[in-house]
Each structure stands twice: as C-alpha cells, then as structure tokens.
Design a binder for these strands. Sequence first.
DNA 1: TGCCATCTTATGGGATATCATGGAATTTTA
DNA 2: TAAAATTCCATGATATCCCATAAGATGGCA
Lengths: 165, 165
Amino acid sequence: MIRRFRGESLHKVDAKGRVSVPAAFRRVLEEGDPDFSRGSSPNFVIVYGGVRGNCLEGYTINSISKVDKLISKLPRFSKDREMLERFINTQSTYMQLDETGRIVLSHRLKEKIGIGDEAIFAGMGEKFQIWEPKNYQNELNALDSSFENLSEDENPFLKLDQLQD
Amino acid sequence: MIRRFRGESLHKVDAKGRVSVPAAFRRVLEEGDPDFSRGSSPNFVIVYGGVRGNCLEGYTINSISKVDKLISKLPRFSKDREMLERFINTQSTYMQLDETGRIVLSHRLKEKIGIGDEAIFAGMGEKFQIWEPKNYQNELNALDSSFENLSEDENPFLKLDQLQD
DNA sequence: TGCCATCTTATGGGATATCATGGAATTTTA
DNA sequence: TAAAATTCCATGATATCCCATAAGATGGCA
C-alpha cells in the first residue's frame, strides 16, 4: 500500500519552535524518502511560498523530486522555469525529523503563517499542510460556503468520475 | 538524495566584501565538486554576466560542466555559441569557500549587482542567485503580479502536469 | 473482559555543536 | 610601501543533540 497523508491534528509549538509531526505522517515521510532506513530520520521538504501564503506545505522527497524533474525538463533560463524554481525551490526548505519525530519551525516560518504556540497538521494526500488554528478554521468555513454555492455541474465530486483514465 | 539549492536567506556583507554562504548551500556545493574531500573547501563558479545583469548566479562544478557540455554541442563559430561562451565562460569566475564558509565579493562583483552591506541568497535548484535585497524584493513582486495576470493555460504550474513523462 | 506490562507518542529541559559575523595579524601585489 | 587580499582567532546566536517523563495506545493473558 502506498500511504497518503490523511487526517488532521493539533500540536504544541514550544519556545524553540519544535513541533511533533503526527505519527501517521511520519510513516508517509519515511516511505517517501529513498534514503530512509530504519533507525534514521526521514528528510522531506517544506514549501512556504506559492500561491497560498497562509500555510506551509510538506512534501516527501519522492513527490518533490517528481516536481523537480518536471521543472528540469523546461528550457534553462526560460521564463516558466525561472518562475517555478522561484516558487518551488526558492520558497522551500529541506527538513529532517529528529529522533522523537519533531521538526523545528524557524522564526521566519512561524511568522510566515502567523503561528504562535499551536499548529494544525492537515493531510492532503500527496502533501500535508501546517496551519495556524484560527486561519485553518477560517479556511474550512470559506470552503464550506463556496461549496454550497456551486451549481450541479461545478460540483467537483460529480466531476471526479468523468476523469476515468 | 541529490540535494538541490533550496530556500532563501539574508546575509551581511562586511567591509572586505566577505559574505557567509548559507550552510545548506555549502552542502550542495560540496556534493557538486568532484574534487571536494572532507576537510577541504569546495570550489564553484559564479556567473555575473548573462541576460539578467541584476544578480549573480552560483553553480556547482558539476552543474556548470553540464552547461559547458551543452554549449559545446553548438556549432563552433556559430553566433549562438559565441554569445553563450561570452556570457557563461567569459563573464564568470571560480570561487572557493574559506574555512568559515564565506566567499569574498570583489568590488567589481558588488558593483555589478548594486550590493551594499547585505545580500540575499536564493536557491534555484541547480543554481543559486545572489541579490541586493531591494532588487530581490522587486523581482519577487514583479513575479507575483505577472503570475496573477496569467491565463489558465499560461500557468506554469498547470503546464507541469502536461509534461508528464 | 478486565488488568497489567510494554511500546509509542507528544512534550519539556539542558548540554553541545554549528553558523554567521567581526576584528586583528599576516601575506601578497601593484 | 601602501592598499588589497588572505589567514587566523574570537564570540554570540541559533540550531541540534541527548536525556527525561507522562499520557495514550497496544497486546497478552488470566
């Protein structure tokens, strides 16, 4: 089975910026790091820029490498490539879990998403997100109300089955 | 894992032109220098010419070799080749990190990109850039706004998935 | 089914190493 | 020989490592 990031949970952020990554997510990060071996700690990547500036996004090494490979196919120095590198590489950082399954969010990262002493981890399949709890709730509410206003043929649930490969 | 240049950070430039290269970048430079051995300091290349005159670009030895090879494939004496050699070979220089992970930017290089006493390092995958902070911010802003004006089928993120191997 | 032993998880505190930066001393070079 | 460049040493801040503990979760077994 290929594990995916699922579920949401709330964690404390201590004075040093340390947060526990949910145990279930750790398993996914381990599977997604080709260099991981039992006894070591998996690496992964956090993207903090991009379109949505209000949360951090965590990717396994494998899934970010996929993106990197695609970007590398674009012509060097092309506008598209520079733009993607800027959003994906410049505004991201390598992370490594520590022995106890934590990462440390630098002052800069905490500031970026307005985090104080708590953080929400939200599984999103191939990636996960880290939110300041209030912002997360707002996001959920916004999502609910925009969903309610959709017409039948805009409903993504209904579109899903038409994509059949 | 093959590390790439990721992330951005701000560093002081002292009166002698010394700047610390971000520690994460040093690891990439070490891996990308075939002659590097533990205890020594990696070499790399800084390109200061090129289309964009407003920043410096740092390449590992391995990745500049890749570019060199590509250039060598162009017909000798062709206009294209002359131009690229001029930009990539003529307007570039070898650099070596010192013991403490710093390089020194000559007066000439600082002038080239308008640097005073601070510099931004920005990871771009196979290369990194060095910017004067204000110029960098302008670049980011320009990027953001040009991104917002893109139509759906110009969006480089969406184009990526069409490249699917 | 209820209880206990064990493992995992989430969290905290203190010690240690690395990083970024500055200044002085020494060498090179023009 | 003065200016520029390089080497060496010093230090505060940050990040990393190591150890500790309490609360859950898990599993075995009577």
